Structures are given as C-alpha cells and as structure tokens.
Computed example of a mutant assay.
Amino acid sequence: MDLFSLSLGALLKGVGELTDDDFAQPSGCEGWLVRDLVCHLVIDAQDVLITLVTPTADPVTHNAVTYWKVSSEPSDDPLAALTVRLAAAYGEPWMLKHHVDDVGQAALRAAQLADPTLKVGTQDMVLCTAGYLDAYVWEWTLHHLDLVTHLPHVAGPPASSLARCREVLEQIAGPFPASWSNEDVLLVGTGRRAPTEAERAELGDLAIPFVLG
C-alpha cells in the first residue's frame, strides 16, 4: 500500500511539472499523445475511487499478479478512441492537469484511509484492498514510463516501484537476465520497445507478453 502512494505521488508530481508543449508530445502508449495518457490517468484514478467504495463479502479470486490479463497481441481497447476525444475536449492543458491532480490526490487519500483487509470487487474480480492497490503500482509505474518516453527532463518512476513491477512481470513471464535494468525489463517485457539483437539472444525462449488491464 505504501508503494501505491509512492508510485502515484511520483506520477502526479511528474504530470504537474509538464509544460503546455509537453502535452502535445507523443507518449509511450502507441497512438496517444501525452495529453491522451494524462486523460487516461484521470479515468484510472476514478476507477480506484470507485473500487475502494465497492466492498463485497465474496471470496477473493485474484491478487496483484493475476489481476492482469496476458495476451500475445496489443490491446484493442474500444475506450482508447474515447480517451483521445475526451483529452481533446479539455482544450487547455492546465484544465487536464488540474483534473488529474484533483482525482489523483483523492485516490491517494482514499488509499491511505482504506482497510487493507477489506475485500473489494472490480471487473468481475474480488481482491483484498491491499492486493488491489498493489496491482495498481503496475499501472502507475508503467504509465509513468510512458509519460517520460519523449520527455527526458521529467523524472521517471521511483526505483522501488520499478523493482516491484519487475517482480510482477517475472512471476507472469519468467526471469529476465539479471544484468538488465528494471526499466529495460519492463519496456521490453511489455512490448513497449523491441529487444536489440543482443538482448534477444539473452532472452532465449522467454516469451514476451503484453500485460493488459
């Protein structure tokens, strides 16, 4: 739960430091500008708020690892086009920046107040609150990498968040070469960049999944 706050807090700080010109730059999410990605973060924060107030008595069915669906193909999310339209509707970057900080800070407060043992329901899954927030460390960290892909002046995600996400990915896909940085593991392991020839040789038969929400 502490990593949830750390990773989301760092991401919100990064968004807060963006200039107006930064919003028009491409992000690490294929087909999305930075403004589209930030709009998606608004939706993510809203989902967290909704889930934390959706308790259930049903048994736990998923954890921070099994929460994520794995496919060999990139996601064809019908909401992706809607996100682009919503982002454009904000008009001025400061409006989008204000909204993501507003709901993001609310998600931080809600997580800090939450009972970690409470069971919550989302997307036909049941997780304990601690497990759900742990799952979202992946979301915040990967999208933080997406945010800074073409913005080298913006700080990236915390080292501890990157390390936790590597643990999750390796539980799904298997171990990556120990010499690889956590960031390279996540970028290659989620298809955000193709491995070099040397990296491909090191990977051997390791399957490279796309980890989807």
Rank of each mutant, 00 (worst) to 15 (best):
A24C: 03
Q46W: 12
A106S: 07
F4Q: 02
D77K: 07
H40W: 10
K69G: 15
T66Y: 04
S5W: 01
R193T: 05
A88I: 09
L41T: 11
E17Y: 08
G121W: 09
T56M: 05
E139K: 01
P158S: 02
H99T: 12
E197C: 01
V65F: 06
D58I: 11
D77V: 15
V148A: 00
H143P: 06
E199R: 14
S27Y: 13
L142G: 05
S179W: 02
L108H: 10
L145V: 06
P195C: 07
A57F: 05
L11E: 15
T66E: 08
R192D: 00
M95A: 15
D76V: 12
W94L: 07
A111W: 05
Y136Q: 15
L113I: 00
L52A: 06
W180E: 04
L82T: 12
W94N: 14
G104T: 02
L11R: 10
T117W: 15
L82F: 12
D44G: 15
L12S: 12
I43P: 05
D115C: 09
G104I: 02
V154L: 08
V185H: 03
V148T: 14
E199A: 04
V168S: 03
T117H: 12
A163F: 03
V126M: 06
L37R: 05
K97L: 14
A80R: 04
E167R: 15
T51Q: 00
A201T: 00
D124N: 04
A110L: 13
S7H: 10
A178R: 00
G189K: 08
C29F: 12
V15P: 04
G213Y: 14
T51H: 06
R85T: 08
E17A: 13
E170N: 04
S71K: 09
L113E: 01
Y90H: 15
S5H: 11
W94V: 08
P55N: 02
Y136N: 15
L118Q: 08
D76T: 04
T54K: 03
L86N: 09
E139S: 12
V70D: 00
H40A: 03
W32A: 03
A111N: 12
H62V: 07
L49R: 00
R85K: 09
L133S: 10
T141K: 06
Q123S: 10
P152H: 01
L118R: 12
H99M: 13
G9N: 04
D101T: 14
G9V: 00
T51G: 01
D102E: 08
L113Q: 05
A198M: 07
G14Y: 02
S161N: 06
S5D: 07
D47K: 15
L118F: 00
E197R: 07
A173Q: 02
V65Q: 13
P157W: 09
R164H: 15
D21M: 04
D22V: 09
F23P: 12
